[in-house]
Design a protein around this nucleic acid. Structure first.
Lengths: 208, 208
DNA sequence: TTATTATTGTTGCAAATGCAACAATAATTA
DNA sequence: TAATTATTGTTGCATTTGCAACAATAATAA
């Protein structure tokens, strides 16, 4: 079964974008603000290179990474309701983004533009993909114990040899799982003692 | 500012659906299976009446309510990746659903059909709305303590007089927050003692 | 290179949480 | 109606978890 969103289609999408609607491409360096909540300027962003995080800061100043975004992911300020917390999209390393104006999408650019339809349908599928990723995060967070969260996380990301390499940091993983870092380390040790995993610094082998 | 998805537009959407793509309308009674994971039959559902839940069952048999769905919400088996857990959409009371075939959406039904474009754009906005709800759930789950989760939940749902009425049950709320029911009750009592809320059986007044 | 900053690994401890169990109601069904 | 089932409210207790603190190491910047 062919993937709904294959490379060819995404390449076409990027080409079509500039031919049809008004888009802006921008490069961000590490830890720069890509987008914040705004009820007026409704924008959809598409990451063409690099990584980013959806970050939340509550009124006490606690910061939480709500989502990890990577190449070919979309994001938008349309996805957030106004709350007491502040939500931002922050680049994680050098990141290239295409911004699409929401109004350009809903208003048919030009009766005869052959690109518009295709763009809307690709955005539609990108939205579905994003939705899927969110459901996975909710599923992860629904796990009762830290051990269950870790196992779910590892199994999703391990390669064919059941190995997961920590390319970011344990700190980042703890933040992603919404658990305390020291507790993550402790649970990993317990899991190793139980024989569920084998851990050598940043390489983890899943044995169950 | 006019809401993106107002009543008029949703009414038009429902009308257009039957004029354009092949849809099926179906009524479900309480606790019936509306949709399960299927990689073959890709369907999008739209709830026209009633309520439903996205329910997950893991291999140990633990059941979790992942999402609450209500009138004008959409759902789809496209939103879920295959996992060890089983995910279903289950009706919660009498529920009326319109099913739309995914292929009908991505294939332009007919070059001159004036409805198709409008349907796709409404689905697009419904997807954004769903995305927003998921982000709210992730934000809720990112709260560190049960008290924080309760407060976030209550503030989102209280009326102008800061009152929230439990129309479902405390059991259902505990499931939605992914916390133990007895602990939810205990925390509510503590919060009342602290003066954060006033609780009289199924009526809660938020005082902060 | 050295100094500075960030990450990792570890632990004690207090607090939060889930689990089990039960009685009292409330709601539903026979 | 009575019987059955589900929900609410409560508690003791064991476990899990987060917090704070620290040393050791690794990574980065001066």
């Amino acid at each position: 079964m062919a993937k709904t969103l294959d490379e060819t289609r995404l390449l076409q999408f990027k080409k079509n974008l500039s031919n049809c609607v008004n888009v802006k491409s921008k490069v961000f360096y590490n830890k720069e603000l890509i987008l914040s909540y705004s009820p007026i300027k409704k924008k959809i962003g598409f990451i063409t290179e690099g990584k980013a995080n959806i970050v939340k800061t509550d009124k006490e100043g606690n910061t939480t990474i709500m989502r990890d975004l990577k190449e070919n992911d979309i994001f938008s300020n349309l996805f957030f309701q106004e709350t007491e917390d502040e939500i931002y999209i922050i680049s994680n390393g050098e990141t290239k983004v295409i911004f699409i104006d929401y109004y350009n999408i809903i208003k048919n650019c030009n009766q005869n533009c052959p690109f518009h339809n295709s763009i809307v349908l690709t955005l539609f599928d990108l939205l579905i993909e994003d939705n899927k990723q969110q459901n996975e995060k909710i599923e992860l967070l629904s796990k009762r114990t830290v051990e269950d969260k870790i196992l779910f996380f590892l199994k999703q990301r391990m390669n064919k040899n059941n190995i997961f390499k920590v390319t970011t940091s344990y700190k980042a993983i703890a933040e992603y799982l919404f658990v305390d870092r020291s507790n993550l380390m402790r649970e990993l040790k317990k899991m190793e003692e139980k024989g569920l995993i084998e851990k050598h610094e940043k390489t983890i082998k899943i044995k169950s």
